[in-house]
Nucleic acid binder design. Structure first.
Lengths: 205, 205
DNA sequence: ATCGTAAGTCCACACTCGTGGACATGCAAG
DNA sequence: CTTGCATGTCCACGAGTGTGGACTTACGAT
């Protein structure tokens, strides 16, 4: 009890850095769960236990806040190399339901991609995400690919992952969420390899 | 000129069937271009040159209208068999910019999938689309697949196609829309084959 | 020619959205 | 202690949304 904060305030009172961080965290979660359009500033502010008007103060506008959230998501998102295609296929098809609050490097690529999928319908949000993906993620993935056309193939890999997550989590396809989903892992693995590896390496395990 | 309609009215005046069709057509286009949430009933009504209130009269609600549009889109959407993977890969990566008004069987699967992608962020719309896809499209595709786990693999194929279209048309990934996009066709083709064909058929062309 | 009914039209409600400006407050420097 | 400025708070606006109810019109059958 002697550890109580000296001021009688129950929480932080005047800490702009902490406030910014709280807004950012709440925004990441809300945007990921509901998408850019459906997520309201009032809802984000309520989740962050912060006055609504402070968001506009710190981030300028809803777009500004979103851009910062997207950048953060893809900066920290998991790296995917051709060697990890097997694990990626498994994670995409079976994971994703646990650890919804995982932040940072622990977060699966699903975090950023889910955010992208749910906000892609808004053209402004789509432009922001495209820019961030190409700058933060696609470039690193392309550098890890062998052979030629690495940029395009990296984009193709991202597209395949996004498509699976879309059908599984947004549409909720029963065929991708049932107990038989594990049997699809080899197929998805082969599809990823077909894009990530060169033809002569296809058979490698 | 002698073929003019007998009544001096510039357009149809009292034709419930034609009005319904006009609303449906305008709704399909508007929903596809802007997504479920962004498309307003007033906007659809204006495009169909119809009073807004008529939509609620004919279709009950926005959801009812959307459900009918989705069903129509997937009923008529193109069939995709394993033999057509090459053409599908080409169409997904290079086509889609022409014939935006194509209706019926001529419409690429892009039509229905674009509608799906832009509306997937809304949970209600997602549920409607999932139901329609599984009923109208996925089942036929699964029947055309060899081997086992045909339902799941059909869902996987749809997911891959959706992902490519998402990155290309919604996000506007430059790597998937540039002049080098044609070089990616073999890779996408191989990925589709990896899911659609059995392992021993992989090399077949 | 007349009347019933379907087809089409208009007004309005309750609600949510992002954002602007004016005001109160507490921490840190003088 | 006093002052200055960043930090946090509140009210409100105008523009959207989907939809309900009451009204007017024209077509088709009697």
């Amino acid at each position: 009890m002697s550890q109580d904060a000296p001021p009688p305030a129950p929480a932080r009172r005047r800490d702009s850095a902490a406030t910014r961080a709280a807004i950012l965290s709440a925004a990441r979660e809300t945007f990921t769960q509901r998408g850019y359009d459906a997520a309201g500033l009032r809802e984000i502010a309520h989740a962050a236990e912060v006055d609504t008007r402070l968001i506009s103060r710190y981030f300028g506008s809803k777009e500004g806040l979103f851009a910062e959230v997207v950048d953060l998501a893809y900066e920290k998102s998991m790296m995917m190399t051709p060697e990890h295609n097997a694990q990626a296929a498994r994670t995409l098809l079976t994971g994703g339901h646990e650890a919804p609050g995982a932040t940072g490097a622990d977060a699966a690529p699903a975090e950023g991609l889910l955010l992208t999928l749910r906000s892609a319908s808004n053209p402004r949000a789509a432009a922001i995400m495209r820019e961030s993906i190409e700058r933060n993620y696609q470039q690193r993935l392309a550098d890890a690919l062998p052979g030629t056309d690495t940029e395009g193939r990296a984009a193709l890999l991202i597209a395949i992952c996004a498509g699976v997550l879309l059908n599984r989590h947004l549409l909720g396809h029963t065929a991708l969420d049932g107990p038989d989903t594990e049997r699809l892992i080899p197929y998805l693995h082969a599809a990823l390899d077909a894009v990530a590896k060169m033809p002569e390496q296809q058979g490698d395990r």
